[in-house]
Design a protein around this nucleic acid. Structure first.
Lengths: 242, 242
DNA sequence: TGTACATCAGTGAACGCGCGTTCACTGATGTAC
DNA sequence: TGTACATCAGTGAACGCGCGTTCACTGATGTAC
């Protein structure tokens, strides 16, 4: 037994006390460091300062631990999307855009969760609890899309709300996985992933007939200070048309 | 030595003759079967009917083989996008949509290449040749976006062409990686990924001011048979607005 | 309050496995003369 | 046209490694009486 391990034993006694939680944390750290594919059951045990057999008291196998991480990820993801949506305040379109940004922020700030959720190769049906958690997270986007669909201006394309939800999801996921991961090895862009996604969502919403003429990062309902640009001018966040 | 291996030796003689190519094919098959993470150098050798040391004559290590697969993938990807774009015939918007579809088709039909290209965890800068191949493939989308940008109707948002290219790329990639992979373990949808992406791109193009009023899968310039719906009616591929 | 005992949550040694990689080697091929 | 020889492209055995998993075990904890 290594000195380090002896020491940890001394600190905590024979029983760990909170090994399950410690393993989840360890897995999260390892996934962040080496990716979901590189994460190892034995490594998680080592990181928690425990023998390689100990994790079997809490998880059937490596996949069950990975799946638990993914599930927790979806739960936190749902919470963040919910709080971004904020029940559609101050207005549906603004809140909707905020959901897209929250998606991206999550991918950025929680790359390990994101990996476990979307890139771990876990079959979606590996655990009913995992599937349910994923479903609940998507439910937030879907509910937002329902509200948006109800507001679609007449004389405009009206895809089903579910389809709109999937559109937003795929845009967010596409931008997140191509440009916003912590890998550092991604393509260099002359704009941030946030700007990219925001513009994409704005054009999409415009395609649905929503007015989206304000600049990004400007609070929409009533600007705190009077802005020089008249509302409704046909220029987007990219400057005036030539 | 196994009987199988003896036999292969007998068939082909001491020298394989085309081992490099055989290893690339083997890798492709293995990636399709077990994912980029599960692919193994030793396995590729076995599949090519060759000793585990043989691949080292052709590839420095596992990563170099993986990277070669990804590079070839980007080359084929570029070819398919090019042919879909067809230099903007018969019109820019139609050709642009076709590029999106080609993206999706590639992800569907070549899941192994797609994995190696986008999900293998290879650092983008692992090889200059790989990076260049990726750049050329993206160049097709970008060139298409340039042409589209030049046509953006006045009085409409005008994101830079590069941004438009990235938008299309992220939509395609998002739909492909969420819904169109061969994993079989993906979410069940009431529509096909193709329909989903097509609608998404159409709404986006509409947001840019392009008229996109025809139905999907209907040849745009002049329908072969007269359609009941008058062109230009404000309904999209989802039926008439209520 | 004490004690016997069941249960729980760990240990550590061992196993078989497949991997990546190396090594000295050898059979096949191509080429200079 | 032959032949000697350099080079190339494989072999197969061996290595060290870390993994997942199992096993009988033991220390700690909680509880019934």
């Amino acid at each position: 037994m290594s000195w380090r391990k002896e020491q940890r034993r001394a600190e905590r006694g024979y029983h760990h006390g909170n090994l399950k939680e410690a393993l989840l944390q360890a897995a999260l750290g390892l996934i962040a460091e080496k990716g979901a594919a590189g994460f190892t059951f034995a490594d998680a045990a080592r990181m928690a300062g425990v023998s390689p057999a100990a994790p079997y008291r809490h998880f059937r196998d490596r996949d069950e631990l990975l799946s638990s991480v993914a599930q927790r990820g979806f739960e936190q993801f749902e919470a963040r999307l919910m709080s971004a949506w904020d029940d559609g305040r101050p207005d549906t379109v603004t809140a909707f855009e905020r959901v897209g940004k929250a998606y991206l922020a999550f991918a950025r700030e929680e790359p390990a969760f994101y990996s476990a959720m979307f890139e771990s190769g876990l079959p979606v049906d590996s655990s009913p609890a995992l599937m349910a958690a994923g479903e609940r997270a998507f439910g937030v986007i879907r509910a937002a899309a329902e509200r948006l669909a109800a507001l679609t201006p007449p004389g405009r394309p009206r895809p089903p709300a579910l389809m709109m939800a999937l559109h937003i999801w795929s845009m967010s996921h596409g931008v997140a996985s191509l440009f916003a991961r912590g890998d550092g090895a991604r393509r260099k862009l002359p704009m941030s992933p946030e700007e990219l996604l925001e513009a994409e969502v704005l054009i999409y919403l415009r395609g649905l007939g929503f007015p989206t003429d304000r600049r990004p990062s400007e609070p929409p309902p009533v600007p705190p200070e009077a802005s020089g640009a008249p509302a409704g001018a046909p220029n987007g966040p990219w400057g005036k048309p030539k």
